[in-house]
Simulated assay, not measured.
Amino acid sequence: MILFITHVNSQSNNKKLFYVDSYLTTSNENNFEYIKEIEDYDSRKKEYNIKIYYKSGKIYLIGTTTNKDRVKLEGKCLYYFENGKKKQVANYHDNLPTGKQFYYHENGVFKAETEVEISKDKKISYTKILNYFDENNVQKVVNGEGEYSEDYDHNKERSKGLVKDFLKEGLWNGEIKELKASFSEQYSKGKLVIGHSIDSLNNKYTYTEIEERAHPKKGINNFYSYVQNCGIIPKNIEGGVYGQILLSLEVTETGKLENITAYADDKFGVTANAIQLISQYENWIPGKHRGIIVKTHFTLPITFK
């Protein structure tokens, strides 16, 4: 038996539409941030044209994905503000930003030119800051030298500091609006040396990594062993099951799994059974962002051979 995965919220001719959440994971009409459109969904291709829309129907992203069920960007990708103005011209390889990146302010003024370099093992990336202009079109970074202001996730997080030889250098200060926290960081040749953050309750944290991923207390191998042996394939299914299911999971600040959903569903009950069994795996160490414990998200592929 072959496990075919399809979960379509809407379709039009050779295009299919999906509700997706803030992580661009397939969701539902009660919990979505964007709408994803895939061209030629029913065909087998190496790459698919993808468009993602704001709830308002305005375009957010235009690009190419190598996976029709999971956003895996490749090549040139265009981002837009909801007012219709261009936000970013990005370049990807295997869903990682690489090469030249171009940014724009919401008022249409050109913002920045950067260049991302990735190590061969894909574990470390370096961002060179080439040029930067503020909202009034005043150039603050010229050929890798000057003062730079950066923002993340629709201005929910901002930081500011010096750039020397194209890389972050010295003291950088910033704020995380969603966590009502502030932080200061020391950089040397673009590498974070140490950071200090203060949350809304005046708790202080020290860190040397901006992101720390959540992980099982017993180790990731124990978790994978559980997934392999917990009996995801229902006993009433006859014959072999082949294919892959993709699950989206969140680890809460207290170390519990929640909001386990699938990128797509199947008619045999395998996906539903996987969600139920994996939700029973407990005891996770939560992730951290700039030293502060936060809810984190990751994707779990389960392959049947």
Score class of each variant (00 low, 15 high):
158 R>Y: 07
130 L>C: 09
154 H>R: 08
159 S>A: 02
164 K>W: 00
160 K>V: 07
181 A>N: 01
144 G>A: 11
141 V>C: 11
174 G>S: 00
177 K>Y: 11
162 L>T: 13
140 K>R: 15
169 E>G: 03
152 Y>G: 04
138 V>T: 12
139 Q>P: 06
161 G>V: 11
130 L>R: 08
159 S>I: 03
180 K>I: 01
140 K>D: 09
166 F>N: 05
140 K>C: 11
136 N>I: 05
179 L>P: 03
139 Q>T: 08
163 V>Q: 04
162 L>R: 14
161 G>N: 11
174 G>A: 00
149 S>P: 03
146 G>A: 12
180 K>C: 03
160 K>I: 09
162 L>K: 15
163 V>F: 04
138 V>H: 10
180 K>T: 01
146 G>M: 14
168 K>G: 01
144 G>V: 10
146 G>T: 12
162 L>Y: 10
167 L>F: 09
177 K>D: 11
149 S>F: 15
177 K>L: 15
129 I>D: 04
156 K>M: 08
164 K>T: 08
156 K>W: 04
162 L>A: 13
153 D>N: 04
134 D>V: 13
167 L>Q: 13
137 N>M: 06
169 E>A: 02
171 L>F: 03
156 K>V: 03
152 Y>V: 14
163 V>G: 04
173 N>V: 13
172 W>V: 02
174 G>F: 00
154 H>M: 05
180 K>V: 03
162 L>G: 07
137 N>I: 04
178 E>C: 01
156 K>P: 00
151 D>P: 02
146 G>S: 12
166 F>K: 05
130 L>P: 04
142 V>N: 12
133 F>N: 15
167 L>P: 01
167 L>W: 04
162 L>V: 14
146 G>D: 13
179 L>T: 03
177 K>C: 03
132 Y>A: 10
155 N>G: 05
155 N>L: 11
165 D>W: 01
136 N>V: 06
168 K>D: 02
141 V>I: 13
129 I>L: 10
170 G>Y: 01
133 F>Q: 15
131 N>R: 14
147 E>M: 15
174 G>R: 01
